[in-house]
Simulated assay, not measured.
Amino acid sequence: MTAPDCGSCAPTRATITRSRLKFIDHVLSKLPFQVEKVQTDNGQEFGSAFHWHLLDMGIGHVKIRPEPHA
């Protein structure tokens, strides 16, 4: 998601969070099966709002462990 070139038009954190939740709802509604668990990396886009949204729908959320840097 990118913001328009106008600085005052940048999306807020709340707008971005709603957009992510709407996206996962859309994806889940299109699948022909019930999802039991979603696995994500540790990116901030999969924070508490995303986590609790999945749990509220009865879907587990597992974050993968980051690989140690060599």
Results as ranks from 00 to 15, higher is better:
Met1Thr: 01
Met1Cys: 13
Thr2Asp: 02
Ala3Asp: 10
Pro4Tyr: 05
Pro4Gly: 01
Asp5Val: 13
Cys6Gly: 09
Cys6Ile: 11
Cys6Tyr: 07
Cys6Glu: 09
Cys6Gln: 09
Cys6Pro: 00
Gly7Asn: 12
Gly7Tyr: 10
Ser8Asn: 12
Ser8Gln: 06
Ser8His: 09
Ser8Thr: 10
Cys9Tyr: 00
Cys9Gln: 00
Cys9Phe: 07
Cys9Lys: 07
Ala10Gln: 02
Pro11Ser: 07
Pro11Thr: 03
Arg13Gly: 05
Arg13Ile: 09
Arg13Thr: 03
Ala14Met: 05
Thr15Tyr: 12
Thr15Asp: 13
Ile16Gln: 06
Thr17Arg: 08
Thr17Pro: 09
Arg18Leu: 15
Arg18Ser: 15
Arg18Lys: 13
Ser19Arg: 01
Ser19Thr: 11
Ser19Pro: 01
Arg20Lys: 06
Arg20His: 03
Arg20Tyr: 01
Leu21Asn: 02
Leu21Arg: 04
Leu21Gly: 04
Leu21Pro: 10
Lys22Trp: 11
Lys22Arg: 02
Phe23Asp: 06
Ile24Lys: 06
Ile24Thr: 03
Asp25Gln: 11
His26Tyr: 15
Val27Pro: 00
Leu28Gly: 10
Leu28Asn: 03
Leu28Phe: 05
Ser29Tyr: 04
Ser29Lys: 11
Ser29Gln: 12
Ser29His: 13
Lys30Trp: 10
Leu31Ser: 04
Leu31Glu: 08
Pro32His: 04
Phe33Lys: 05
Gln34Arg: 15
Gln34Pro: 00
Val35Trp: 08
Glu36Trp: 13
Glu36Phe: 13
Glu36Gly: 15
Glu36Ala: 15
Glu36Lys: 14
Lys37Gly: 01
Lys37Asn: 03
Lys37Glu: 06
Val38His: 08
Val38Ala: 01
Val38Gln: 03
Val38Tyr: 10
Gln39Asn: 09
Gln39Phe: 06
Thr40His: 07
Thr40Glu: 08
Asp41Met: 08
Asp41Ser: 03
Gly43Leu: 12
Gln44Arg: 06
Glu45Thr: 12
Glu45Gln: 14
Glu45Phe: 14
Phe46Asp: 04
Phe46Glu: 00
Phe46Cys: 07
Phe46Gln: 08
Gly47Ala: 03
Gly47Arg: 09
Gly47Pro: 04
Ser48Gln: 11
Ser48Tyr: 04
Ala49Glu: 10
Ala49Pro: 09
Ala49Cys: 14
Phe50Met: 06
Phe50Asn: 05
Phe50Tyr: 09
His51Ser: 11
His51Pro: 00
His51Tyr: 10
Trp52Arg: 01
His53Asp: 02
His53Phe: 06
His53Tyr: 00
Leu54Phe: 05
Leu54Gly: 11
Leu55Ala: 13
Leu55Arg: 10
Asp56Cys: 14
Met57Phe: 00
Met57Val: 00
Gly58Met: 06
Gly58Trp: 03
Ile59Phe: 03
Ile59Glu: 02
Gly60Tyr: 07
Gly60Trp: 10
His61Leu: 11
His61Ser: 10
His61Ile: 08
His61Cys: 04
Val62Glu: 14
Val62Asn: 13
Val62Arg: 12
Val62Ala: 15
Lys63Val: 12
Ile64Asn: 14
Ile64Glu: 07
Arg65Cys: 12
Pro66Val: 07
Glu67Phe: 15
Glu67Gln: 15
Pro68Ala: 08
Pro68Arg: 02
His69Thr: 05
His69Leu: 00
His69Ser: 06
Ala70Trp: 10
